[in-house]
Design a binder for these strands. Structure first.
Lengths: 209, 209
DNA sequence: CCTACCGATCGGTAGG
DNA sequence: CCTACCGATCGGTAGG
């Protein structure tokens, strides 16, 4: 796909960047080839030729979203140590993007498309589900490293809180939900052994608990 | 709208019941007049005449969903006393519906449509947002009655957990998320003053805390 | 990457 | 509640 830097690959990347924005607002069904072509000032069939079917365009868009998420949220958090610090770094990076509104114009791509495809079986559903399972799995792994007694539940709650913040912020527009989410995450992390709450005293006092 | 029991009102109710099912799977945009008419074995224009525009059909569907939610989740929970017991009753009723898969065929109508409309301003967005605000407000009120130190946060977390369970169940199909959600809700309720955890000792021992 | 086209379906209207 | 229709747009194809 990207094994050369020819014009085709450049055009394809430009198409997918725009497709991501459109899909995070209108979903992967609402992403139409005609509209995408018009915004990119190219012909519908010219764009179509890059993918061969709408489904292939949708799958490529899901792949591009996964790459963007990895680069924006996962990659920077790898600088934090394994376990609780990395869990906090991932949650902070994700919430910061949602709050600053500089992530996707339509909020979280995964929130929008997972709700859209939760009842539409097929390759697109499977691609979205696979990406989400990968990230939930990464959260679960970090929770396990951090000593959580129930890493699966921990990952679920972290996921629910950040997705809930996205949903409530997009619908009601009140940024107080980010404070709620951070407080919930603080309490989640405080469950982990030997992990003090944000802004509390240094770890020494609590290490004996 | 329902001030008579004539044939028009009966037909309208049948249309909306079917519209609810379609919209919880394919969203309120994916709900098309032609498909709805075909499933109900009536003409497209005959159905259209009941509403006058697609937007009016969408708004009527949102109203019908609110009524169905109220009857299925809120109404039964009113038998539980104010505060923590009612919060648990609401959460249990909601999770039971999601788990039994007998609520909407496409999972939670509100999860599907709020993600779909979070970036589409207009009357449909406002109707969905209004319904969600009403229920979040009810949760917040009950949390306040139960003595929560931060009812807004409490309501947000409860909302996030049940919506997260819906989302994960629809995408991954693993019912363990309902156990995760119930555990999270137990811990949330345990934060409230004088409220023991499900299955723990009776309230007497804790009343002094 | 283009023009020109296809059948199907969209929301909506005319007229009854 | 119907038949018959409208212009627009959908995904996709032919042929270059």
């Amino acid at each position: 796909m990207e094994r050369d830097n020819g014009k085709g690959a450049v055009t394809r990347a430009a198409i997918l960047a725009r497709a991501l924005d459109l899909a995070s607002v209108d979903g992967l069904e609402g992403l139409t080839i005609g509209r995408l072509a018009k915004e990119l000032e190219m012909s519908k069939s010219g764009l179509f030729a890059h993918f061969g079917s709408k489904q292939e365009l949708q799958l490529a868009t899901v792949g591009a979203a996964a790459e963007r998420f990895r680069a924006a949220v996962i990659e920077p958090a790898l600088e934090a140590p394994d376990g609780a610090p990395r869990l906090r770094a991932i949650a902070d990076a994700y919430l910061a993007h949602l709050e600053d509104d500089d992530y996707y114009p339509g909020g979280c791509f995964w929130a929008a498309t997972s709700a859209e495809y939760d009842d539409r079986p097929g390759p697109v559903h499977d691609a979205i589900a696979g990406a989400l399972d990968t990230w939930l799995g990464a959260l679960e792994h970090q929770a396990q490293v951090a000593g959580s007694p129930d890493p699966g539940r921990f990952a679920f709650e972290l996921y629910a809180v950040v997705m809930g913040a996205n949903s409530r912020f997009r619908m009601a527009g009140d940024p107080i939900v980010f404070a709620y989410a951070r407080e919930a995450i603080d309490r989640l992390l405080a469950e982990l052994p030997g992990n003090p709450r944000r802004g509390s005293v240094e770890q020494a006092d609590l290490a004996q608990d």
